[in-house]
Amino acid sequence: MADFTIEYPGTLAEALSFLDPDDPSVRPVGGGTALMLMMKSQMFHPTRLVCLSRLSEPMTGCREDGDHIRIGAMTTLSQVEHSALIAAEFPVIHNAMKNLANVRVRNVATIGGNLAHGDPHLDLPPIWAALGAEAIIHGPSGQRSVKVEDLFQGYYETDVADGELITEIRVPRLPGWRATYRKVTTRALHDWPAIGLTLAARFDGDRIADIRLVLSAAVDIPQRLRGAEEVLRGHRPDAMLLARAGDSAAAEAPMEHDSRGSVDYKVHLLKVHILRGMNEIGKG
């Protein structure tokens, strides 16, 4: 194992000074669970790890900020799971936690690390995307923000450059919206999903006023299903319409065969769960 150093900056500025825009072997570390897995499987050989555990607000905690909720990147998944604010504002996030990894991982893994990892099988990134959240990113040239749905650029690739780090997630409060995340596992209850499907919608009477659908796990990045959204937006979600939305979703999201299922079967699951998910949030 090649030697490397671990730094513990006390401030954000110090943290950025330890990072290196020209060296992908220098990485920021949140809880380190995903990074440890990559190091153990010889997929990543660091020269320097910049551990963010000593940074404080705004990197930690969940708080209200006008019509947004802000979550510090170093907030652990457990802290989000047990946050009354999150449970009240985004029950879809709260509900996803129970079947996300396990207690030990949730105690250590962080919201920021979970996003920055870029793994398309994860549960939270597609939900953030469907909620219209944005990631606040700090780097050598200052601060910028990127919508979570635009953050992912490929399999394990994100828009966060070397030398940058995610400091916060900013999620709009969505009065009147209802959302659900369907983690569809096919090998065991406790598994990476064969497909992940997030549905978030606002209803106007029995019509869908607005909707966001995000598919994850079976595709390289969490992906908005805009065609299916278009089919649904403004209409009453009856079985025929949902079937059309399913066809559209299947056409716009090329999925991959793997040990969790064939392409045909995943397409079938996608259609079934668009229907079931809409029925779930349609009931209110």
Partner: peptide, 11 residues
């Protein structure tokens, strides 16, 4: 064990 699924308590 990430991809070969042996029974856990929920099973």
């Amino acid at each position: 064990l990430a991809d070969y699924k042996i029974p856990g308590l929920l099973d």
